[in-house]
Design a protein around this nucleic acid. Sequence first.
RNA 1: GGCGCUAUCGUCUAAGGGUUAGGACGGAGCCCUCUCAAGGCUCAAAUACGGGUUCGAAUCCCGUUAGCGCUACCA
Length: 498
Amino acid sequence: MTTPLKPVRVRYAPSPTGDFHVGGARTALFNYLFARHHRGSFILRIEDTDQKRYNPQALAWLLNGLRYLGLDWDEGPEAGGDYGPYVQTQRIEVYRRHCGRLLDAGAAYRCFCTPERLEAVSKELQRKGLNPGYDRLCRNLDPEEAARRAAAGEPHTVRFKLPLDGEIAVHDVIRGDITFQNANLQDAVLMKSDGIPTYHMANVIDDHLMEISHILRGDEWVNSLPLHIHLYTAFGWEPPVMAHLPLILNPTGKGKMSKREDRAPDGRKLPVFVRTFEEMGYLPEAMINYLALLGWSYDDKTEIMGHDELIERFSLDRVNASPAVWNYDKLDHLNGHYIRQLPVEELAERLLPFARAAGFQVEREKMLQVTPLIRERITTLGDVATVANFLFMDELPPYDASELIPQKGNAAMALAALQRAGKALDAAAFTREALEVRLRDEANAMGVKAGQMFQPIRVAVCGRKAAPPLFETMEVLGRATCLKRIGQAIHKLAEHAV
RNA sequence: GGCGCUAUCGUCUAAGGGUUAGGACGGAGCCCUCUCAAGGCUCAAAUACGGGUUCGAAUCCCGUUAGCGCUACCA
C-alpha cells in the first residue's frame, strides 16, 4: 500500500474529439476512486490541442457522462480551481514560454522540414528496412541561424533533442521497471508549426504546473513514457508517479474497444459510449461497479460494490497489468441486480421517463402499480417499453390466434377457457387473490390443469405467452380491459377455427 | 518490420513457492412455479508451450509462441 506523502492530485485529461467512451470512463473512474480514497483532488483537464479533430459537442458529452456516473471533479471546467485554466487552448502562452526555455537550453531545436520531406524520409527509411521516422536533419542546424529563419516567418516546428544512445529506465507502479533504448526514440515534435503544442509537451507541462502527483492513464501511453520522462528531466522537474491501466478490449475481435458502435450478430446494439448506456437505461451504480471490476479486484469473492465501498477499497496495487475483455452479459447482470435492489417507488420514478420516451402516456400512479410486476423481468430501464407495453396500451399489438392454444390443448378447449373466464371475471371481486381462487375453481370445473387454463387467458390479456404473473397483471389492467381483451381473443379464436 | 506490454475456466478475476487452483458472468441440470423472469442448489470448464531455480512452481528466471498496443506537425 502506497501512502503518498505529497497531497494526491490526479487528473483525467481527455481530448474532446468525440463521444465519451467507456474506456475513458474507466480511466476517469480509477482516477476518481484513487483521489477520493486518498482524500486528494480529482482534476478534469481538457486537452484540445488537436484542432483538426476537435468536436464541439464532445465537452458536453464528457461532462454529462461524468455527472451521470457520479464522478464529480474538484477542479476543471465549470468547477474552477487555483491551477486553471483547465483547457489547454487557453494556456498556449504557458507552453510557448516553456518551449522557449527548452530552445534556449539547447534541449530542443527548430525543424524546417516540410511534411512532404518528412513523409519521403520515412518512406525511404522504411524501404531500407530501417525504422521509419525523422532523420534529425535539422538537429544540427545552427540555433542562431534557425532563430533568424523563424523570425523571418519561415514555418517550422520545434523538436525535442533526445539522447542518441544509452537507455532510460522508467518505473510504473503497475508494470514495474521498463527500460527503453534511447536510440529507438524519435525527436518528437513539441510545438507544431501553427504554434500549438503537441500532446506530449502540453501534457507534461500541465501535469507539473498543476502539481499532479500520480498519472493514471491507459496502457496505450507506455511507449510515450521515455519521451515524457526525458521531458521532465529537461525541464528539471520531478515526474509524477506513473500507473498505466490495462486496456479494455472488444468482446469480439479482441482489439481495443471500438470507438464506433457495433452490433452483435443478432442485431443487438453493442454500445460503447457512456451516453448510449445511459439512454438504454443502465444504472450508474451498475456502470461504475462493472467498470471498477475491469482491471481491478477487491478480493477473491466480493463483486457487488457501491460508490462508497469502491472508494473505501480501491487501491492501485490491486490493479491488473493484463488487458480486460468487455463483457456485456456481466454488465447486464449487475444492472439487473441494481434494478432489483431499488425500492419500488424509486424504480418507478426512474422508469417513468423511459416509458414516456417510448411513447407511452403513463401516470406516476400507474407506474407504481406496474413496477413490481416487471422488476424481476428487466435488465435495463429501457426494457420497460417492451416488457410492460401491454400494460400501457389500449389496444394490444397483433398476435397470432394460435398463441391462445396451450401445448396440450386445442382450440375448443382454449375457447371454453376464455368463455368461462369471461363469465367468472364478471362475477368475482377484482383482486389478485379473488381472481386466483375463482379461476382455479373454473379450471377444476373444466377438468383441466390450472396452468392449461391460465395460458389462453394470459395471452388474451397480455398478447403473449411470456408475461408477469397473471392475477397481479389482471388486477393492474382492471376488469374492463381484461374483459375487452378476452372478448377480442374469443373472436380471434373463432375466426382461427374457421 | 521495430519497440513495448501481456499471458489462470469462453469472459472478468482470486491464489504474491506448499490449496481438491477459489469466486462471478455465461452454459448445462435440478428445485421453486400459472408462463417468463427472479431466487436457491448442483455440474462442466483454466494455470499457452519448453527449459531452468527449488525438497516443492500457476507463482521466480530464461526462451518460444500468441494476443494486444505504439510506431503522426492525433491524442
